[in-house]
Amino acid sequence: MTQLIALICGTLFGIGLAISGMTDTHKVLGFLDLFGTWDPTLVFVMGGAVVTTFVGFHIVQKQARPAFASSFSLPVNKNIDRPLLIGAALFGIGWGLYGYCPGPAISSLAYLRPESLVFVLAMVTGMWLEKLCSERTI
């Protein structure tokens, strides 16, 4: 059941990314090009998604527990610290360089292009490198 629900949610998410234009790197870079020929349409993606979660999460979190799990698995760290800000900054640079954030990069594998595959492999490698670095500093 858990797998089926996750599959359906992932599929909805993937449909959303595809029809909204998030899997189109040109459109994403046009959206980030605030000081050039700015393409504002992707504001509606973020807007539509955040309004939906804002209202939906509020209702869901009134429940004692999720429908098909024993408890909510929510992030516990509330600190605005250096790793958060440095990580977000580096992520934004990578996003601005090619136009893929993680979701659209994975969804674009559907287009069977080597560039999506290479991007996703590089992304996983980056995640692995971060793990190596964080283990060293501990």
Binding site: F91, C101, G126
Partner: peptide
């Protein structure tokens, strides 16, 4: 770009 996105989103 992929390396930065992967490293940055984990950090």
């Amino acid at each position: 770009a992929g390396l930065l996105v992967g490293f940055g989103t984990r950090l």
